[in-house]
Computed example of a mutant assay.
Amino acid sequence: MKINGNEIRPGNVVEHKGSLWLAVKTQAVKPGKGPAYAQVELKNVIDGTKLNERFRSSETVERVRLEQNDYQFLFAEGDMLTFMDTETYDQIQIARDLLEDRSAFLQDGMMVTVESYEGVPLGVALPDQVTLKVVEADPVVKGQTAASSYKPAMLENGVRVMVPPFVESGERIVVDTNEVTYVKRAE
């Protein structure tokens, strides 16, 4: 399936320069002069090499259709993560570095989508948002309320995010797993 270069999202697998590449990060760039483009960090799914590429909206790339199966996260053991197919109860193990930093957001029993190509797992799609508890938040500094100011906070999974000044330690917040950013307070 052909898609425009500016439609590439993190987690997409594209065919580029005769190989399969996983989009790790994307950034829309609008320079003052010239047309806009997408700056995409690609990772080769076979040998793990990385490549930074610019895609203009007029360029098209072939998006590879992957087999998508729903799995439940069971546990982590060393560098391996174990998932279970909820229909067949088959278990698979995937290397933690396939998820990179996002593996910190895995929670027991979490449903994920494992994408594979010819039986080889290439990626794990987490839910877009997860709810986590703030275990440490800096106190609010008076006088910083004129402009929108954020402060650092540590989550229960060890990840640091920037949160609004009203968020305190012990509160539960919703975090975007793709951008690793604060979304809102949890209900």
Results as ranks from 00 to 15, higher is better:
A28E: 11
V24R: 00
M162V: 09
Q107S: 15
E15S: 14
E156G: 07
R56K: 14
E187R: 13
L22E: 03
V64S: 06
F55C: 07
W21M: 06
V40C: 04
Q107R: 14
S169N: 09
V159R: 14
T82C: 09
P165F: 04
V40W: 00
V64E: 03
A28M: 13
R56I: 06
V140S: 06
Y182K: 05
T131C: 11
R160L: 10
K33L: 13
T86V: 14
E156L: 07
M111R: 11
G34S: 07
K2I: 05
A146R: 12
G32R: 14
D85Y: 06
A36S: 15
D108T: 08
Y71L: 03
P31M: 08
V40T: 10
D138H: 00
V130S: 08
Q144P: 00
G109I: 04
A153I: 08
K2W: 09
E62Y: 08
Y71P: 00
E115V: 02
R63A: 15
V163L: 07
S148G: 15
T177M: 07
E168S: 14
E187V: 10
L132M: 14
P164T: 02
T177K: 04
P35A: 10
V40N: 00
M162T: 10
V159G: 05
E53R: 12
K151T: 03
G119D: 08
Q91L: 08
K25I: 03
L66V: 08
E168T: 15
T145E: 15
N69C: 05
G78F: 11
P35C: 02
R54Q: 13
L155D: 02
L98T: 11
V24F: 00
Y37S: 04
M84H: 03
M84A: 13
V45K: 01
D79M: 09
M80N: 13
E171P: 02
M1K: 15
V112W: 00
L132W: 05
A38P: 01
K50D: 04
K43L: 10
E62W: 04
V134D: 01
Y117P: 01
N178D: 11
S148Y: 14
V114G: 00
D176E: 10
T49G: 06
G158R: 06
G5Q: 05
P31C: 09
F105Q: 01
T145L: 15
N6Y: 11
R54S: 12
D70S: 12
V120F: 06
P10H: 07
K151P: 05
E15Y: 11
V14N: 03
M1H: 14
A95L: 11
Q72S: 14
T86S: 08
T82H: 09
L99G: 02
K2E: 15
G170A: 12
E77M: 12
V29A: 10
Q129R: 12
V24S: 01
